[in-house]
Every structure is written in structure tokens, then in C-alpha cells.
Amino acid sequence: MVENFRLRSVAAAAYGPAALFGLSEGAVLPVIAPSAIERGAGTATAALIAAMLGVGSLVANIPAGVLTTRIGERRSMLVAAAVLAGGVLICRVDLGRGPWSLLLYGSGVVLIGAAAAVYGLARQSYLTEVAPPHMRARALSTLGGSTRIGVFLGPFAGAAAMRFAGLPGAYYVSLAAIAAAAALVLRVPDLEGAGSAHAPVVTTRAMLKRQWRVYATLGLGVLLLSAIRQTRQTVVPLWAAHIGLSPTTGSIIYGVAGAVDALTFYPAGKVMDRYGRHWVAVPATLVLGTSFLLMPLAGGATLLTVAAMVMASATGSARAS
């Protein structure tokens, strides 16, 4: 299977659900900060709640690995869909303005982040094993690209729904997309070769002890790079709200930036396959830092869109790396 591997051979099973899962996330991401503000949060509190996405992902990463090993990739995808749907539904419960409403909303955001961790690991573990080394970067970056295509479409779908249903419209789009992703996963059997039931059991403690040098060097770099690129999910919607743009306009700007993000995944994968990851990671980090310098200069929708597009070009390459 490795010798005859083609990206299109896993399109329906791996990339289809990825795009729908991304669409579900993309519909919600731009409205997290405005929803928190609507519930009485200040700018700092809204940023903290938006950052709960990363907290949920971080907390769920190791359990996601254990879950995928025990129940398999397909069932893990279904668990991720259920958790994401639960998080979105919790976010829709409105207790009015106040700390309890914000606490409940934040818990829903944490679940959305946790679902993303479970889903991401389930698909990546399969592609890492089945793709040959000379195509692995392209296979994984295409997986990320499929998700980002969904993330690109999600804000536009959410913005269209908000024209008729207000902020709740974005959550309705998210629920519809994750239901479609779950339905597709249910119809697609586990991919052949996506793991082995006889694989040796390795504990987390033993893995950390054996690979501590990797985690202390490469792992630290990945941590810092991930922290930087994750800020786009928070900074763009928050700055849009700060300069008085509507949630619908903020979603459209986020979606335009998502198009740039999605266009970078395959070229970045080819560069990594040919020259190595550092040729993508280092320039992406420099461009990302520049985009943060541009953001405070954005006083309207046009400049904010430009800054968001620059940021997205870097996060797309960084995510692929």
C-alpha cells in the first residue's frame, strides 16, 4: 500500500471529514470573543475565554493518544464529533450577563478545543503510518489543508447564517457541519493499516524518559511556535470587536484570512519534503511576528484584513511544519 500510495486514495476517509470538522470549527471561532463580550466580558476576559481553546487542546492531547490507541481512529473521530457538538451546545446556553454565564461558556470552549485535539491525533496517526517517508509531509500538510479549507468556509457560512439568526446562526452552522462529518465517518470503515492491535504498549512516562532530549529541544520549539500561531484565533476577532466591527464583518475577515491559510499548505509541504522543515518554520515565524506589529495599525476593516492575511500566510506554513 505504501508503494502505491496516492493522496486521492484517502480523500474520502481522511480529508472529507477533516474539511467538515474544520467548517464546524471555522463557523464558531470568529464569534467566541463577541459571544463572551455579549455575556458581559471585558476585552481581557474575552481573550482569556478564547484562549480556553488552547487549554482544552493541551489538556486533551495525552488522553487523545490513549483513546486512539485503545478504540481506534474511527471511533475516536466519532468521540471527537460528540464532544465538539456538546461544547457548541453548552456555548448556546445563555444565562445572561455575569460570571456564571461566562464560566459556562468557557467550559464549552474548552470542550471544543479538546475535540480538536482528539480529532487531529486520530487522523494524523493514520497518515503518519500509511504514507511513505518521501510523501509524509505532503500527506500531513494536505490533511491540515483540508481542515483549513473548512475553517476558511466556516466563517462565511456562519456570517450568512448570522444575517438571519444573529450570533446563534454561527453555532447552528457548526452543529450541522459536525453532524455531517460524523455521518461521513460512520459510512467509512477503518482504513486498512491504520495501526496494529499487536503494537507494543509504551507508557507516557517511558516515552518522556526515552525522548526527553527531543521534547526539551524540538518540543519546546513546537510549543512556542504553536502558541504564536494560535493567537490568530483570538487576536483577529478581538481586534475587530475593539475597532467597532460587527461579528458578521469579523467573521468575513477571518474567512478571507483563512483562504490565504488554506492556500499555503501544499507548497509548504513540498518545500519541507525537498529542503526540510526549518526552511518553512523559520520564515513563517518571522512573518508572523511582523503581522503582530501591523495589527495595532489597523483602524478599519481594510487594514485589518491585510494584517490578518499576512498573519494567515505565516500560520498556514507554520501549521504545515
Results as ranks from 00 to 15, higher is better:
Val280Ser: 09
Ile49Lys: 02
Leu186Pro: 00
Leu143Cys: 02
Tyr105Asn: 05
Leu84His: 10
Val118His: 06
Ala27Tyr: 03
Gly255Leu: 09
Ser317Tyr: 05
Gly87Arg: 10
Arg277Cys: 04
Val10Phe: 13
Thr305Leu: 10
Ala268Trp: 05
Ala64Asn: 12
Asp261Ile: 01
Ala241Val: 00
Tyr172Trp: 11
Ala44Phe: 15
Pro133Val: 09
Met207Trp: 03
Arg277Pro: 01
Leu103Gln: 12
Gly108Trp: 07
Val31Lys: 06
Arg148Ile: 02
Asp261Val: 04
Gly113Gln: 12
Pro267Asp: 04
His242Thr: 03
Val287Asn: 07
Ala307Ile: 00
Arg138Leu: 11
Ala259Phe: 14
Val236Gly: 04
Leu288Phe: 13
Ser35Lys: 07
Gly316Asn: 02
Ser76Gly: 12
Tyr254Ala: 13
Pro132Leu: 07
Glu38Phe: 07
Met77Gln: 13
Leu153Ala: 13
His134Val: 13
Leu111Ser: 00
Ala179Ser: 13
Ala170Gly: 05
Arg70Thr: 11
Glu73Tyr: 11
Val83Cys: 11
Ala18His: 03
Gln233Thr: 12
Ala240His: 02
Met207Asn: 02
Glu25Trp: 13
Arg213Lys: 14
Ala216Leu: 15
Ala50Met: 14
Leu303Ala: 11
Ile253Ser: 06
Ala268Val: 10
Ala117Arg: 03
Ile32His: 01
Pro99Phe: 04
